[in-house]
């Protein structure tokens, strides 16, 4: 952490990783794992795959789309939430804190159901909403799913950003102030970048948590990859195969998220 890290670090790590894979016990474990994969491929039923491939691709796409939209929107919402809690006056920080506590204190499933069933049963009773341009969208399930997941991510990230904003070195902000930088420029150029850089690893972990929260929206009839696997299960009574593929899918996405955040971390200047 102290000295600037040479840019070679990532490459070095890769080489060490490869060499450590070639220890005898790891080779045995890998052989066992390969055997397991082959056993799965041969003796389990995979004949349902071609029929469901188009649906699965659509579901996977929707999962990723929901994940990206809700993390970006949730993060944008988290910045004011964090800022309000870190430096805001009490009439801003108290509501922000209450919001974060409530989101973090209740299960996400309950929040999704509250929005979908609660708001969804309230809206049709209000005439001007029924007549508005938005009504065709509000009758579908996905706006509620996106809203619930966005609010949830914002709640958790608001807490993270609170710590991040108050962790930025005061001297730098004072220096910017002394240069006569406008407050918004100071925020954009100094405060926000440093805050984000400090919590990048946490954000990566939270994004994986968000990925793991996406299957919950299947309970309100949004067709994403999890509900496709449930569909296969109820149509064909094949239990394990779709679930295994589903788990592999989520692991791949989680791996991609990890790699992406590692690249972000390597791109930022190390202290």
């Amino acid at each position: 952490m102290g000295a600037p890290r040479p840019t070679l670090a990532a490459g070095d790590k890769q080489m060490i990783d490869w060499r450590s894979l070639l220890q005898p016990h790891r080779i045995v474990l890998m052989a066992l794992f390969a055997g397991l994969v082959i056993w799965c491929a041969v003796s389990l039923r995979w004949d349902w795959i071609p029929e469901y491939t188009p649906l699965a691709i659509e579901g996977a796409w929707r999962t990723i789309w929901i994940l990206v939209v809700t993390t970006v929107a949730g993060f944008l919402l988290a910045i004011p939430l964090g800022l309000a809690q870190a430096v805001g006056p009490w009439y801003l920080s108290a509501p922000a804190k209450t919001f974060c506590t409530i989101i973090r204190g209740t299960p996400l499933l309950l929040q999704i159901w509250l929005l979908y069933y609660g708001l969804g049963s309230l809206f049709p009773q209000i005439p001007w909403i029924r007549g508005s341009e938005l009504w065709p969208y509000l009758r579908q399930a996905w706006p509620y799913a996106v809203l619930a997941l966005t609010l949830s991510y914002a709640g958790y990230e608001g807490e993270v950003m609170r710590g991040a904003f108050s962790g930025v070195n005061k001297g730098q902000l004072e220096a910017a102030n002394a240069f006569g930088m406008p407050r918004f420029t100071m925020f954009r150029r100094i405060w926000l970048p440093q805050a984000i850089r400090n919590v990048l690893p946490t954000l990566g972990g939270e994004t994986i948590l968000q990925l793991k929260a996406t299957p919950l929206v299947a309970t309100i009839t949004v067709v994403e990859i999890y509900s496709v696997s449930s569909r296969v299960r109820s149509d064909t009574f094949i239990v394990y195969e779709p679930l295994i593929l589903l788990a592999v899918f989520y692991m791949i996405i989680a791996g991609i998220i990890t790699l992406m955040f590692r690249r972000f971390e390597n791109q930022t200047v190390q202290r």
Binding site: I208, P215, L216, Y226, A247, Y250, M251
Partner: peptide, 9 residues
């Protein structure tokens, strides 16, 4: 594995 796969699954 446990930390990468959704709890629901």
């Amino acid at each position: 594995v446990i930390r990468a796969v959704p709890e629901l699954v």
